[in-house]
Nucleic acid binder design. Structure first.
Lengths: 219, 219
DNA sequence: CATTAATTCAAACGATCGTTTAAAACGTGC
DNA sequence: GCACGTTTTAAACGATCGTTTGAATTAATG
């Protein structure tokens, strides 16, 4: 009991504070105060502040990415001989992580943290995230190509990145978004948020490619 | 000459470093070392680190926002009695800030910084940014409504935020994006980037609203 | 129960932080 | 050249930082 408890207390406090203020603005003393544990426990259990961050991220992100891949595989097998639907691919990507917001334990902290992490340029963290996301990148890239066979690779990649930005912004600022748009943050609204994001990004993926951007590729 | 130079040196160094590593991870000593000025000069010229950040942002962001508003006004007067085109609104919003990337002095630092700032949850900074962006919000909101008269206000707001995420991600990570997509970062590619972003976001704004998201609004 | 391993604790280390202070240096106008 | 204003400078302040250390406490094992 108490053995696992200190560690979890630290992880939870760190998750909340990193999400609120960012990695660099939160000290270990902030975390241990919030967690009501001793400062040296952080080094005992995690070794360093950086490692703590990685653990905070990976403890929830790994299962999420696993679920993403499972949902995608399911969508593929459901499609069978038909073409893989873009909306199914997008849902597989968004649903697991947005569902994490409904977790009463983590609530919005974790997803806010993930949204922030996407924008963080700390080299150590980028390396770590790339490692966490490699398989997701590979599999979803292939899935997007399959769902959008007529879209050129370069355009597909750019649109994937725009989509990632839209998703990260939504994850990171969902409380601001709901306040600004006067919608509620309950469970059913979560499905609505996801649907809204799917509508927007699917619309973006399917948008006609302007002549300018296509022509310029050949120069 | 030397009178303005120290101040500008500090601003330039801060811009670059804040963009690279974020506000909290960069110390004043990092900045003055890079700028080759004395530590106390920061307080003499700017008063505090926080104020320095605001000045770094506002010195370029204000003219950009001014230009955005001017371009929008121009687009409106060009439209005359016709409906304002969504693409014109988007271009007015994106072009001035993406053009800042072509500035050899600021290059990518400033836009990367703005991209990061959108995601920063520091209360002081959010207040400051809201102040800088109020007029842009108001005018562009109206313009989007005009360009998309059939889109419900709530859906419009959500899509505006998705668009903001896509834009911020692009601003923040443009070097990663160009490397990942194997495109070049020269001037003509800038126009291409903007066009790609317009294509995607316009596609998103015009996407059909799913039944689910609409129905749920009434519960 | 004794021994060993694991965990927690308080204190300290060496470093760095934003800010302040007062003196020195420089610039300006008469 | 002098008086005054502005800017730069080096040093210091009080605080905080991540990490380390060794002792105390607790848990596990035979």
């Amino acid at each position: 009991m108490p053995k696992a408890d200190t560690k979890t207390k630290i992880l939870d406090a760190a998750e909340m504070l990193f999400a609120q203020k960012g990695f660099d603005a939160v000290s270990l003393r902030n975390i241990v105060e919030s967690a009501k544990v001793n400062l040296a426990a952080v080094h005992y259990h995690f070794g360093s502040k950086q490692t703590l961050l990685h653990k905070v991220v990976s403890r929830r992100f790994r299962p999420i990415n696993k679920e993403r891949l499972a949902m995608l595989a399911n969508a593929k097998s459901n499609a069978g001989k038909h073409k893989l639907k873009l909306e199914a691919v997008l849902e597989s990507l968004f649903l697991p992580i947005f569902r994490a917001q409904a977790n009463p334990k983590a609530g919005k902290s974790f997803t806010r943290l993930i949204g922030r992490v996407v924008f963080d340029r700390n080299a150590e963290l980028q390396k770590f995230m790339l490692n966490e996301l490699t398989e997701v990148f590979v599999e979803f890239s292939k899935a997007f190509e399959e769902a959008l066979p007529d879209l050129e690779k370069t355009d597909l990649d750019w649109r994937s990145h725009f989509m990632a930005g839209a998703m990260a912004h939504t994850l990171c600022n969902s409380d601001l978004l709901t306040r600004f748009t006067q919608t509620n943050a309950n469970d059913s609204e979560l499905e609505t948020t996801i649907q809204r994001l799917i509508d927007f990004t699917a619309g973006g993926f399917r948008a006609k490619v302007s002549k300018t951007s296509k022509t310029n590729k050949n120069t």
